[in-house]
Amino acid sequence: MDAHALEGGFADPARDAAHAFRAIMNAMARPGTLHDITGATPPAPLSPAAGAALLTLCDTDTPLYLAGDADCPAVRDWVAFHTGAPLTGPSHCMFALGRWEALGPLSTYPVGTPDYPDRSATLIVEMDALTDTGARLTGPGIRDAAALSLPGIDAFCANAARFPLGLDFLFTSGAQLAALPRSTHVEAA
């Protein structure tokens, strides 16, 4: 294992994780809003925001799927040391991390069952940039309408149509984070 894998975690785990979780919760509760999330310095190609989300939410209880570029030795070692999350394929993961193109097709992820819709995957999507423009969002957490630079439209419409089943998304870019729960209705602007 490379010694770099031991670095880049939260300096003050309890308080840093509390701040990071507040950002993630506010993002999930208010789809389309952008939040700063800091404290982690994961190895490339992960963004600091994606690293902080992993440190805040993942541990030995959460199978993790690393997709595409994210599935490299540096990231595997870092995830193993800091979270202990077991790595798995898309069909059995609780969390998945990667770029949008690498994560597809979405049909392979668990979407929950009618009795337990919470047993579904959360996808952490790495983006080049995040802005509050683009697709029009409506639904719980949004007063009138919000906008977010989503990587697509149709996939998210299909996901919302399965409510209460479905996937939930975190979008990360640099030290910024936004979220899109399955309850949000998505349409082209």
Partner: peptide, 18 residues
């Protein structure tokens, strides 16, 4: 921290399925 992570994951799923 592990307990908090478990509760935090539940809160996020709760917010996603009001």
């Amino acid at each position: 921290e592990q307990t908090k992570r478990m509760i935090r994951r539940a809160i996020l799923k709760g917010l996603a399925i009001p």
